[in-house]
Amino acid sequence: MDNTPFISEIYIYPIKSLGGISCQSARAEEMGFENDRRWMLIDENNQFISQRKHPILSQFQPQILEDKIEITYQDKKHTFLINESINNPILVSVWDDQSEVFEVNKTTSDWFSECLGFACKLVKIIEIGDRKHKSKALNVTLNVSLADGYPYLLVGSESLDHLNEKLEEKITVARFRPNIVISSKRAHEEDHFGIIKLGDVTFKNVKPCARCIMVNNDPMKSIVLKEPLKTLSTYRKVDKNVLFGTNLVCVEKGVVNVGDVLSF
């Protein structure tokens, strides 16, 4: 029986820290999958907004409809064009990096402000190179999107299964917000990948991903509990970091599909 690892799930997260979209295929680019974390919410001080402080963001669910993105929140819906923006650059910080972004439109910002109960703007990164991230692991500067650091996160199915064996209440991979899930053979084997190919696309493994309190937010309920970080810290803690999944960069662009096999 052929047990070669293959892509079992693909996700994109158009707006940083909001819900994800399950895809059958996605175009892999230098900055991440097409339309992945090209948008984010910022507050009045131009600081990015995330589930770390506002777990309710997991309740905002995006959907791509041809040239539009539709956001659903409770009984409300809002739509904006993928390519629209106000030509007035805003300088923002994403952790240690600065990026030039542009507000999508005032109506969209007002809609999010009303839903969240405080003033915010939806902004977009437009050009490759508008945010550069210095990778200490690779000792290179990367062109990235508005993701926390690296453009891609890969998780092996066995890593999640191994964790769920230790948890009283089982969780789904949605807690970890991966871009790619593979049907792995051993728990955490993805930590040790080097250069890999998924279909016709080539990726380079950067380092295992250090996890934060966001993984304790149940995305269906927006309730933050102690798991799974509490259990992960008993066997996945390295130098004060709790690791789960691994960060990748794309070194040869193309389209990946659910079912594409992994090769080295």
Rank of each mutant, 00 (worst) to 15 (best):
N217G: 03
C115A: 07
T231K: 11
N257F: 06
D161Q: 09
S22Y: 06
K53C: 14
D239E: 15
L167N: 13
S99V: 03
T202M: 12
P55N: 10
P219A: 05
V101H: 08
V255C: 04
W111E: 10
K230P: 07
L167A: 02
V256I: 15
V251T: 15
R27S: 08
E252C: 02
K185Q: 14
A174D: 05
C250K: 07
K204V: 01
K226E: 13
P62I: 01
D110H: 14
R236C: 03
H54T: 11
K166M: 11
G259Q: 08
D96M: 06
L154G: 12
N87G: 04
P228N: 04
H54R: 12
G245R: 04
W111C: 01
N241D: 13
K226L: 14
L81R: 15
K76T: 05
H192N: 14
P62N: 06
F33M: 04
E9Q: 14
Y150I: 01
L18G: 05
E165R: 07
K166D: 13
N179A: 13
T107F: 00
L146A: 02
P55V: 13
A119L: 06
D67A: 05
D97H: 08
G19F: 05
H162V: 09
I126M: 01
L198H: 15
L138H: 10
F264I: 07
K197F: 07
S113H: 07
D260V: 08
T72G: 01
K134Y: 15
T4Q: 12
K68E: 13
V224E: 05
F193N: 08
L138E: 03
E44G: 09
K16G: 10
S263Q: 06
P219V: 11
D97R: 00
E70P: 00
I10G: 09
I223P: 13
A187K: 04
C115T: 07
P5C: 11
N247K: 03
F264N: 09
S22V: 07
L57R: 12
L122I: 12
Q24I: 09
G199K: 01
W39A: 10
Q47Y: 10
E70Q: 13
F264Q: 03
S93G: 02
R236I: 10
S85V: 03
V261W: 08
R37P: 02
D96P: 00
S159H: 07
V256A: 03
V255S: 09
F176M: 10
L153C: 04
S183F: 00
W39K: 04
L167F: 09
G149M: 14
I49Y: 07
T246Q: 07
G199H: 02
K76S: 04
K136Y: 02
L154N: 13
K230T: 08
N247M: 08
D67M: 07
H192T: 03
I126D: 10
K207H: 06
I49K: 14
G149R: 09
P228I: 00
E190A: 13
E44Y: 02
L146C: 06
G245A: 15
L18K: 01
I182Q: 06
S50V: 06
L138C: 08
D260S: 11
